[in-house]
Simulated scan of single mutants.
Amino acid sequence: MVEQLDTAINDAQKADETCLVRRLCFIKNLYFDDSTERAAQRVGVSRHTGDRWLARWNDAGVDGLRPSFAGGPPAKLSPEQFEEFFTLLEDGQPWTPQAIDDLLWERYGVTYD
Rank of each mutant, 00 (worst) to 15 (best):
H48S: 13
H48I: 12
H48W: 08
H48F: 11
T49V: 05
G50K: 03
D51L: 12
D51A: 09
R52F: 13
R52W: 13
R52E: 14
R52C: 00
R52V: 11
W53Q: 01
W53F: 03
L54N: 14
A55R: 14
W57I: 01
W57M: 00
D59G: 03
G61F: 13
G61K: 08
G61C: 01
V62D: 10
V62C: 01
D63V: 08
D63F: 00
D63E: 11
G64P: 00
L65V: 02
R66F: 04
R66L: 01
R66M: 05
R66P: 04
P67A: 08
F69C: 04
A70W: 06
A70M: 06
G71Y: 12
G71M: 09
P73C: 13
P74A: 11
P74R: 13
P74W: 10
A75P: 04
A75R: 10
A75Q: 13
K76H: 07
K76F: 13
L77M: 04
L77N: 01
S78F: 11
S78V: 05
P79C: 05
P79K: 07
P79E: 13
E80C: 02
F82H: 12
E84C: 03
T87C: 03
L88I: 15
L88Q: 09
L89M: 07
D91S: 10
